[in-house]
């Protein structure tokens, strides 16, 4: 083999080597792509599962809250009304029996209202504004504190998952205010700009040092839940200066 022949072989083998190298590179890239695609799909499925789990938990909690409310209503309201109706029906006076009938009608109406709350269909039919108004009316009816609602916008076209999360987070935020802050006034504002919808819940209660890390999981859960629907939960509070909670949902 003379030097020229050697060089020609080198050229042929170098060409084949480069071709082989490129083939290996492309096959490796396709293989890695497939692997990462599978990993991504797995991750996505997991996020979806977690999202569904969170929503299920929220539904359970709302149902639990509803059952507690119904129990309280049955005991404090309907029970009392039925006792009163029984007394009236026991009377020999005609107008008392008429009054008893009216009370019974009221009881029927109240029971119908309560039965509607037993499943979560009411979530579909109610707007966030209506829900907040109901919650504030309920707080005010107990005489616990004064409440105000300022709504610049009607939040009635939210998807069910966002609605469920908002309902639960608002419910929990109001419960926390009542349980821990002893406020004289609770105010809720609903606003919207080009980028986002905002719900601002403020109370003038005791407040707390929000810069210190909370030991409980309550706030963390609320934050996490807002994040599952792409939203944000921001809390600012100071001792003696009340608490402000800002719920943000992107448009």
């Amino acid at each position: 083999m003379n030097p020229t022949e050697d060089q020609i072989y080198v050229i042929i083998f170098s060409t084949l080597f480069l071709g082989g190298l490129m083939s290996t590179f492309v096959v490796a890239m396709v293989f890695i792509h497939r692997q990462r695609q599978a990993q991504n799909k797995q991750k996505l499925d997991q996020i979806k599962l977690e999202h569904e789990k969170t929503l299920l938990n929220i539904e359970n909690e709302i149902q639990q809250e509803t059952l507690t409310h119904i129990g309280r209503e049955l005991h404090d309201n309907i029970g009392q009304l039925l006792s009163l109706a029984k007394l009236n029906f026991g009377s020999i006076k005609e107008h008392k029996r008429e009054e008893g009938k009216e009370i019974l009608n009221l009881v029927i109406k109240e029971v119908r209202g309560l039965s509607k709350q037993l499943n979560l269909d009411w979530v579909e039919s109610i707007s966030i504004n209506e829900f907040i108004a109901q919650q504030l009316a309920r707080i005010e009816s107990t005489g616990f504190c004064q409440t105000t609602l300022h709504a610049d916008v009607e939040l009635d076209d939210l998807p069910k998952d966002q609605k469920l999360v908002l309902i639960r987070v608002i419910q929990e935020s109001l419960n926390n205010a009542i349980k821990h802050a002893s406020p004289e006034k609770i105010e809720i504002r609903i606003m919207e700009n080009k980028r986002e919808k905002q719900i601002l819940i403020t109370d003038n209660g005791k407040g707390f040092d929000s810069s210190q890390k909370s030991t409980g999981s309550g706030m963390f859960n609320l934050k996490k839940r807002m994040e599952t629907v792409g939203g944000e939960f921001n809390l600012t509070s100071a001792v003696g200066k009340g608490t402000e909670i800002k719920l943000i949902l992107p448009n």
Partner: peptide
């Protein structure tokens, strides 16, 4: 493109040499 440029890499670099000797 990868295959074109890698397979013709050596050929293009040694074109005159190749045509001259083989």
């Amino acid at each position: 493109l990868l295959f074109t440029y890698s397979l013709t890499y050596i050929n293009s670099m040694t074109m005159i040499y190749l045509y001259e000797f083989n």
